[in-house]
Amino acid sequence: MGFFTPANEKVAADIASRYPRRRSAMIPLLHLAQEQEGWVTGPAMEQIAELTGTTPVEVLGTGSFYEMFKFHPVGRYLVNVCTNISCQLLGAEDLLEHVESSLGVRAGSTTDDGLFTIEEVECVAACTEAPCFTVNYRYFHRATPVLFDEVVADLRAGESPLARGGAADDGPMPEHGTLARNRQRIPVRSRAGVVPPEDVNDPPAWMPTEAAADG
C-alpha cells in the first residue's frame, strides 16, 4: 500500500513529470507528504524513494537537511519568530519572550493541546517590517505582543488572522503542511516539454545552428 492518497498520487506523478530527472522531485514530494499528514512519516519516505528512484535512507538524509521538513508531529500552527539582526534591533527577543510565556512553552516545543509549535527562526525576508513572525509561513509584519494575542485568539476561535498581518495576504489559514493554497498546473497541450540532458545534442528550435551563425 502506498502512502499517498489516490488524488495525491496523481499530483505526485504530475510533479515528477516536470523534471528531466525524477530525483529532482524530492523536495516537492516531501512537501506533498507533509501536506497530507502534517509531517513526514516513514511510509511517506518509502513511497517517495520509489517515486524518485532512491532509498528511504536517502530521502531522510536529504529531507533532514531542510528545516521545513518535520520528522515528528508538530502543532496545527507553526509559529516562527524571527530574531535575526533587523528584528533583534526592534525588539524580537521581547516578542519571542511574550510568545513563549503566553503559550506556556519554549521555542522548539508544542503546546499540550497540539495547536501551536513555536520556533525561533532566521531572517524571513521581511526586515523592513521588523519585528515579524509567521504562522504556517504566512507573514505578520510590525508585530507587537497585542497583535500576537489577537492572532492566537483568532486561531483558537477557528478564524483566519491573515488580514491582520499587514502583509497584504488574506483568505483562509491553512493547517501546517499545506504550504500554498494552490499549485502550478501545466496543461499537457501547452507544454514545451521536459528536456532530458541525455536526449538532446542540438540547439533548441529558435537558436540559429552554429553553422548558420558562423556563416
Binding site: L30, F65, Y66, M68, A180, Q184, G193, V194
Partner: peptide
Amino acid sequence: DEAYAAGYVGAEICGSNFSVDVVLHWGAGA
C-alpha cells in the same frame, strides 16, 4: 497558469518557434 493559458509560456510562445516550460520549484528552508 495565466501565462500558460494566454500563450506566453510553454509551447510556441506568442506564435513563434520559441518554446520553454517554466517549472515552479519550492525550496524547504536552508
